[in-house]
Design a binder for these strands. Sequence first.
DNA 1: TGGTTTCAGGGAAGCGCTTCCATAAAACTT
DNA 2: AAGTTTTATGGAAGCGCTTCCCTGAAACCA
Lengths: 345, 345
Amino acid sequence: MPVTIYDVAKKAGVGIGTVSRAINNSAQINPATKAHVLKIIKELHYQPHALAQSLARKKTFTIASVVPFFTNYFFVELLKSVQAALSNNNYDLILYSINRMDRRDTTLDRVLTERRADGVLIFSLGVSDEYAEKFIDSQIPVVIVDHMHPQIDSIVIANREGAYLATQHLIQVGHEQIGMIDGHLSSYPAILRLEGFKQALQENHLTFYDQWLEICDARVGEHGFNEAAGYKAMKRLLSRNSRLPTALFVASDVQALGVMRAAKEAGLRIPDDIALVGFDDIELAKFVGLSTMHQPIAQMGQMAVDHLLQRIQGVHHNGFYTELKAKLIVRESCGAKQAFRVQVE
Amino acid sequence: MPVTIYDVAKKAGVGIGTVSRAINNSAQINPATKAHVLKIIKELHYQPHALAQSLARKKTFTIASVVPFFTNYFFVELLKSVQAALSNNNYDLILYSINRMDRRDTTLDRVLTERRADGVLIFSLGVSDEYAEKFIDSQIPVVIVDHMHPQIDSIVIANREGAYLATQHLIQVGHEQIGMIDGHLSSYPAILRLEGFKQALQENHLTFYDQWLEICDARVGEHGFNEAAGYKAMKRLLSRNSRLPTALFVASDVQALGVMRAAKEAGLRIPDDIALVGFDDIELAKFVGLSTMHQPIAQMGQMAVDHLLQRIQGVHHNGFYTELKAKLIVRESCGAKQAFRVQVE
DNA sequence: TGGTTTCAGGGAAGCGCTTCCATAAAACTT
DNA sequence: AAGTTTTATGGAAGCGCTTCCCTGAAACCA
C-alpha cells in the first residue's frame, strides 16, 4: 500500500496541509516544522502522487507531442532536443504517435480534451482549420513544428529558401540542366522545396522541365521521404529521359541516398555525370560526401519548447511564426570541390 | 470552462453514476438511457478527464519508458514498435529520457513512485540490484529491453551468439586473422559481443590478438556506438599495427560506417584488403553493402509490450528472460559473395 | 494590560472521476 | 394480490492531493 500524505501527517504529528506546505516550499510554514516533516517524508519514502497533484493543481507539468510515424533522423533528433529542453524545465513528455493518418483527428481530439498535458507540440503534421479552431477554443497552448497554420504558433525550417539556396549553388557551380527529386506533394515541406527550386531556376532564366521532376511515391505517413522511394524515383527519372539533367536537387538526404544507389547501378558517377545536393544533413551525409542543406534541428526543438512553456506561463505573442534558416554544406556530391580543385590547378 | 460529468448529468436529466456507466460500457444500464446520455455527451463535446479517471480507477493506461539519450537507429526503431504496440492496446506512452547517467537513479525513482504509469519499460540501461529490489517491492511491472537483470523480466538480442555467428562467418569465408572494433565495455551488449567473438576464435583454434581489438571511446550515453567513434577506433587500429588483420568484426553498423571511412582514407579496399561484418542491420547497411547481423528490433518492441501488458493483467511468469536471435545478412563487405563468385568461375 | 496584527497550522472543500450502496420501479412468482 | 427477484438509477464516498478559511498562539503596539 503506497504511503499517502495522511500517513506522513499522522507520523509527523501535523495536519495534511502542513505536509503539503512542506513539500511545496510554501512560505507559510515554520522552518523547524518543515525540516521535521521532510525528515519523516524521507523515512517513509513518501513521494506525492503525480496524478493527484495534477488534478488538484489543474496543472500537469506534462507536454503532449503528436508525431507522425517517426522513423527518420529528423524526428529522432527533434524529439531528442525537445526531450532535453523539457527535462531541463521539469516537464514530462507524453508521446502520441500517428500510425495511420485516418486516426490523426481522433488523436488530436484526445490530446485536446483528455487534459493530460499543459501544452501540445505538433510535429510535421498539417492541422485543418477546424482543428485549429478547436485548439484555440480549448485554450490549450499549441505549437506546430515543421509545418504551419496561420492561426497557430508555428516554427519551421525555411524550406523554400533552403531549396532556393541549394539550387542556386548548383547553378553557381555551372549547372544549367537541373532536375529535382521531391517528396510527395501531400507534404508541406515538399511543396515549399519545389517552389524554392523553381524560383531559383526562374531567377536565373533556366527552364523548368517537367520530365526532370520526379515525385516520390508516398508510403503511409512518410511522404516518400525514404531511401527506397528515392531509389525508385531515380530509376523512373533515368528510364523516362534520354537526355539527363547534369544535376539534381533532392528534397531530402535519405532520398538522395537512394538516388545515389540508383545512379551507381546505372553506371553514373557522382558528381561527374550527375551532381547532387540534398536536404537535412543527416549523420550519413558526411559519410557519403553528400552536399546538403543543414537544418538546425536541435535549435528548432529547443525553441519550440521555450515558446510553448512561455505560452503556458501566459505570455502570448500574437501570430508567432518563425523560420529557421537552413545552411548549405558543401561536400563532394555537388561537384563544387572538384570545380574548385580544377580551377586552382 | 471544460464540461464535466456533472454538466452531462444535469443536461441529460440523469445522475452522474448513469453518465459514468454510459461511458464505461457498463451492463447495468438501460440501452435507451445510454443512447440518450451518449447523445448529450456528443452535443456537449464531453470527454472524460483522463487524470481524474486514472485517480479514481487506480489505473492509468499509460506506460513509462526510460531510454538513454537516444539518437541512433536502434532506439528509434524500438520506440516505434513499442509505440505501435501500445497504441493498439489503447495505452499511452510517457517518455523519460536519461540525458546524464548521474540522473538515472533520480529518474528511476520518479518513475517508480510518481505512479503515473501502470508499467515500466527500461531500454538498454543497466539496473542495480538496489533498484531491482525497489522495483520488485513497488509491485510495478517492469520489463528491461536490451539489457538484463536476473530478478527482472528481460528481453535481449542474443548478443553473444550473434557475435559468435558473425565471427564464425568470417572464419568460414577463410579468414584467420580477425580483429574486432567494439563499443565501450560499460555497455552490456559490447561485453557480450566481445565474448562471442572470442568464443568463435577459440573454437576454431585461432589466436585472439589484443592489439587487434579496438574499444571505442564512450561519449555520454552512447558507449561509443556512433560513426565518429568507429572512425577513430579504426584510425588507432591502423596506426598501432604494422600487420593488419584481414577481417574485422565491428560491434555495430554505425561504427562500421566509420571504419569504412577510415579504411577508405587509408587506401584499403573492402573486402579485398579488409573484410567487415557489422551488427544491427541499419537501413544504410544495405546501401553501403555492409554484411551484418540483423536484429529483430520490431519484434523485440512488440514482445516487450505484450509481456508488460500481461504482467499488468496479473499474469506472472517467474524469471522471464528471452533472447531473440540475430540473423546474418550477407552483403559485399564480408567478401563472401566474391569468394563464392571466384569459386563458381 | 488589553487590543491588534502576524504567523503557523488544522482540516474541510474541491479537483473530476468510479464504484458501491441504497432504493424505487418493473418484472416475475405463486 | 401480495411477496420476491431483477433491473436501473441516484448520489455519497473515496482516489490523493492543493488551497482556502478559520483558529489559536505569539508578537507587537500603545
